[in-house]
């Protein structure tokens, strides 16, 4: 187990390094482009050359890469061009807001998805199964920006129950969280429900469930002790990897509802060519993604005794 953990950690670090090279190649390696982004399109050639020299961009690429990498590891991502504060500071601040949003989404989406999936997969082909399948295929077909529009139309325009934006300009307001959370849950819970349904249906067909029924166990016990545990193994990874998806999903939702989170920051930075913030956001996003991947792998191994003991 220790070796396994160690290996996963090493793999995680390796992935991060490869990603950092990619980000460096995409955004950093062309010094002139960076200078244009920092100094603006109307800067003169001389100004840019001076800036490049001053900031060490005239050194060899590999020297610059390691310098860049080490300063990132110290938490120094450079200064935001738009906000004029250290990029790391603003990213961490926004990441906190996004964590609140994401946490709420997870808290609702996972139990809802699992419940629907189990109910559907328990009796394949039944009415409850077909209803769940239909609901989930419809909700996963509506993109987040579309459901944001439609739900705003419904709850704000027609019913007038909820505020249309979530900028929290007058302090924390739970009512402003409802729409963003609803949009994200609606889009993603169907996916979990479908995964869980497929897994549950497969388990219910398996010979060991037949064994459990034919050895005279009550139906409840068959479901709770024999089916659920095995059916949860496959969707577990999917659920954890939804964190990764959330990082994408929040961009749209935060932008639409003016929620001051990580996704909106990345988008603003991207539209304004705020290069250091983009770098910081990308690295943080990948860190979270790779981290969840590692958690998913370790958890999967723990849940599945067939892997745990080999």
């Amino acid at each position: 187990m220790l070796i396994f953990l160690g290996k996963r950690l090493l793999a995680m670090i390796a992935t991060m390094l490869v990603v950092s090279v990619l980000v460096f190649l995409l955004l950093e390696v062309n010094g002139d482009a960076v200078a244009v982004k920092v100094l603006g399109p109307y800067s003169t050639l001389e100004q840019r050359t001076n800036w490049l020299t001053a900031n060490g961009y005239d050194r060899d690429e590999h020297v610059r890469y390691f310098d860049w990498l080490f300063s990132m590891m110290r938490g120094d991502f450079g200064e935001s061009i738009v906000f004029h504060v250290p990029a790391s500071e603003i990213v961490m601040d926004r990441l906190g807001n996004t964590a609140v949003l994401g946490g709420l989404v997870f808290l609702i989406m996972v139990p809802l998805g699992l419940l629907f999936g189990v109910l559907a997969g328990m009796k394949e082909g039944s009415l409850q199964d077909r209803s769940v399948t239909l609901i989930s295929v419809i909700t996963t077909s509506i993109p987040e920006f579309a459901s944001a529009v439609l739900l705003t139309f419904l709850f704000v325009f027609l019913l007038g129950w909820l505020p249309a934006t979530s900028s929290m300009s007058d302090g924390w307001d739970p009512a402003q969280m409802v729409l963003p959370v609803m949009v994200l849950v609606l889009y993603a819970f169907g996916y979990i429900a479908r995964m869980m349904r497929a897994s549950m249906a497969e388990v219910m067909q398996s010979p060991y469930i037949r064994t459990a029924i034919l050895k005279g166990l009550p139906y409840n016990r068959v479901i709770m002790k024999h089916a659920l545990r095995n059916a949860l193994i496959a969707p577990f990874t999917v659920i954890i990897l939804q964190i990764n998806w959330l990082l994408s999903g929040v961009i749209v939702v935060e932008y639409f509802f003016n929620y001051r989170g990580f996704g909106a920051l990345l988008l603003t930075a991207s539209l304004n060519q705020d290069i250091y913030v983009i770098q910081a956001c990308a690295m943080v996003a990948v860190f979270v993604a790779v981290g969840t991947q590692t958690i998913a792998d370790v958890g999967y191994t723990y849940l599945n005794p067939r892997i745990r003991f080999t």
Partner: peptide, 24 residues
């Protein structure tokens, strides 16, 4: 029927590996 199954009538299956719950 439940009380009968597994206590009065029991069964042995073709694929023992598949017939046993892998995570119990």
């Amino acid at each position: 029927l439940r009380q009968l199954r597994g206590s009065e009538i029991a069964m042995v299956y073709q694929e023992p590996m598949a017939a046993l719950n892998p995570s119990m």
